[in-house]
Design a protein around this nucleic acid. Structure first.
Length: 308
DNA sequence: AGAGGGATCTTCT
DNA sequence: GAAGATCCCTCTC
């Protein structure tokens, strides 16, 4: 019997049984082996002696204290390393642009702030920019400039640029000369209070608190909420202590991904219409919903299951 | 809910 | 000098 999409968008995220994806083989978040405390501290001391120039995110914190006052090693250097065993690596990013744009849907973007707090968000909307032939890409014509150099670097390199003088957009370079994936929206998971602060701090007056789904529902909003700026340009997402990708617990199946035209591409001729934007159907955090495309594709997606 | 316009400044031609 | 992979506020229906 063929696998069939369930009637709710959430249920459709489950891949067919028996199909393993690369990230299924990676260690699940939270289930890693914790080094015994004493050994941990010894190793930490040795590491500090060996290495005198730790990056801020590598500096071992004091023991974290939970709301009940119990200490836990959540912010220790070794917890970070254990956590990063579930970090998506260079091999993952080494795939064609469209493939990567779809593949990152459902994965978790993690941002570790200098004070040790971690922000998490599920990627729910992306766009593919294919490189030289793509008239809407910053790398159209194969032109390399100081701004877009990251698009030509190895897959997994971040390309962060400023737009309209005040905002930032964040891309991940993929396979293909000058190709990259724009992250357009996230569903906030951890650190929503921090995101709220970061988002409202750049507004004037006493702004109303944003709804959760409004925190990261746009390419520049997610950069604000995750405190991502030009400093992050050309960083390696596969190997950076302040930002990385973790495999998501549920990945949308083919039917749960809506494919439509990219946003804000005004004067790029036929390339403006190409179906190079991808988002998770039914997710509240998607920046712009294409109702027409959703109507046209819903029949094959949301067949009611006969009762009795 | 949707349309329209202003803000703001880097990048490239 | 013009354009831009955006956001937010205001106005209208």
């Amino acid at each position: 019997m063929a696998w069939r999409a369930a009637s709710s968008p959430q249920a459709a995220f489950c891949p067919p049984r028996g199909i393993l994806r690369p990230w299924d083989l990676l260690t699940a978040r939270g289930s890693t082996w914790i080094m015994p405390r004493k050994k941990n501290q010894l190793a930490h001391l040795n590491a500090v002696q060996r290495k005198s120039t730790l990056l801020p995110a590598e500096i071992p914190g004091t023991l974290a204290v939970d709301p009940d006052g119990n200490a836990s090693p959540l912010s220790s250097k070794y917890f970070i390393i254990e956590k990063n065993t579930s970090q998506l690596g260079s091999d993952y990013f080494n795939q064609p642009c469209i493939s990567l744009a779809k593949s990152v849907l459902g994965q978790i973007l993690v941002r570790k702030l200098p004070d040790g707090r971690e922000l998490r968000g599920k990627i729910v909307e992306t766009e593919a920019y294919l490189g030289g032939e793509d008239e809407a890409s910053h790398s159209k014509g194969g032109k390399q400039t100081p701004r877009n150099a990251a698009m030509f670097m190895k897959p997994g390199t971040l390309y962060v640029y400023q737009i309209y003088g005040i905002y930032f957009c964040m891309n991940i370079s993929s396979q293909g000369e000058g190709a990259a994936v724009l992250l357009r929206s996230l569903e906030p998971l951890d650190g929503l209070d921090v995101m709220q602060q970061l988002r409202s701090s750049q507004k004037k007056g006493q702004p109303k608190p944003l709804k959760d789904w409004q925190l990261c529902n746009g390419p520049s909003k997610l950069c604000q909420a995750f405190d991502i700026n030009k400093d992050f340009d050309q960083r390696d997402l596969a190997q950076n202590p302040a930002i990385w990708l973790e495999p998501g617990p549920e990945v949308p199946g083919e039917q749960a991904v809506v494919t439509t035209a990219r946003i804000g591409i005004g004067c790029s001729g036929e390339w403006a219409q190409k179906p190079l934007r991808f988002y998770i159907r039914g997710n509240r955090c998607v920046s712009i919903v294409d109702k027409r495309v959703e109507r046209e594709t819903e029949c094959s997606y949301d067949l009611p299951v006969a009762q009795g």
